[in-house]
Write a protein that binds this DNA or RNA. Structure first.
Lengths: 234, 234
DNA sequence: TATATTTGCGTCATTAAGACACATTATTAT
DNA sequence: ATAATAATGTGTCTTAATGACGCAAATATA
């Protein structure tokens, strides 16, 4: 379908439209970002957010999912629109408008693979991210800010944690996202009072100390809470 | 610059990019939306959000401001990006990606004028908006939802009220946005405790009853509160 | 068996929120 | 003038949430 060059003509000039994704993962200790090493110019060899050009038969969200599948092998993940960047000089190839998304994924859902255009994907701790291609530093910062504010009024965890988890693990997730320390006992009280946790009978074992109780999220209550929002001031 | 037709050719097809604006105004009683009556096809004669096509030398935000100035005569207003809509069939003229914005304006800053393309602009109460062109109903709903959630964690009022105002007026603004009734005395306590109001010596007069005290926002404290956020659970 | 480490539950003081009562002020009607 | 009306402003009381801790229980290791 794209065989002929110089095929598409318009009365007025048009920008290209692309999507880029800020993908957050949690390994139990740190918040991580998934980056792609660019295999082609511009910015060849530099790290960048996964993304690519919009096709005429897909929405920007579909584009983001497709590019993620192609470049990282991930599919069926939680995706939300972040912001649209349109600075005139943000891409040396010409005028490019980028619709950015952010995604929350369980670490184990993702197998690091090379992409389809000679690129490779890798997790980076949020505080050890190298300088990125294009204006992706800014997109990443906007994504992280959004996540930090979102966690204040919507439950986060289901999308980032394994199905079975402990409250201390959930607390480490909150601390990794917000970059602050919270009181263990108050966190416990707050998260329990939300009434979205289902206890599992067995505890965590073999950790060299008292094992924490295990839980899973009550999906219905979790989604209901997500819809009506909450106030997580911890 | 746009004299020749069929001038711009690309290797791959590209969507058009436009901006649309949800403009909120407050007249002291109701929340209003500014709409444009379309003077040309498609949807000629129907009401629509103000907006238009992106030019190559401007960002989407600059585009939104330019279109607003052209179509409604408004400039220098508070503008914030809302959402980007990219459904494949959202515009009968072809593939159009729209970056939407919402704006908060003081009613008196705006003089209703006809636009430059034989269209006319008019305020509509938020609950008496007619069926709109394109997918603008959806954009409007997203804009109103955003405003409702935003008011919960950022001060709103400075952008929508006159410079001098009373607390009951501010309360009516909150009630108009949220669509609920709040207790007068608790609202008073809450808004006063935010420490962003500067009292003016004279009261409101000639209103048939006790006149309310007048205030203005302390700009610095207002902006500081806006940056750090708040929790307005009223 | 003692020790270290981490988890789970409880307490207490402070603050904020929701529901009202009551006094004050300015205009209008008698 | 005086009373009635219709708002506004301040205060009280109860209940709920928050922040800062204390202490006991559980589990692997010395």
């Amino acid at each position: 379908m794209k065989d002929d060059l110089n095929k598409y003509t318009y009365d007025y000039p048009r920008p290209s439209v692309t999507t880029d994704c800020v993908i957050f993962g949690f390994d139990g200790f740190e918040l991580n970002i998934l980056l792609i090493e660019r295999g082609i110019e511009p910015f060849k060899g530099q790290w960048a957010l996964p993304g690519g050009f919009l096709r005429m038969e897909e929405t920007t969200e579909e584009c983001a999912r497709r590019e993620l599948a192609e470049e990282t092998g991930m599919d069926d993940l939680y995706l939300e629109q972040l912001f649209t960047f349109s600075d005139v000089k943000r891409d040396p190839r010409g005028r490019v408008v980028t619709v950015s998304y952010y995604a929350l994924v369980k670490s184990t859902d993702f197998k690091v693979i090379g992409g389809d255009d000679a690129s490779s994907a890798k997790w980076f701790p949020i505080h050890q991210v190298p300088s990125l291609a294009f204006d992706h530093d800014m997109i990443l910062r906007v994504g992280h800010d959004r996540l930090k504010s979102k966690i204040r009024y919507q439950p986060i965890g289901f999308e980032l944690l394994e199905e079975v988890f402990t409250i201390p693990q959930l607390q480490r997730l909150y601390e990794a996202i917000l970059g602050i320390q919270v009181d263990r006992r108050n966190f416990n009280r707050k998260i329990t009072s939300l009434d979205i946790l289902e206890p599992i009978e067995n505890k965590l074992e073999g950790v060299g100390h008292k094992g924490a109780r295990q839980f899973r999220f009550d999906k219905e209550k979790y989604q209901a809470l997500k819809s009506r929002g909450l106030n997580f001031e911890i």
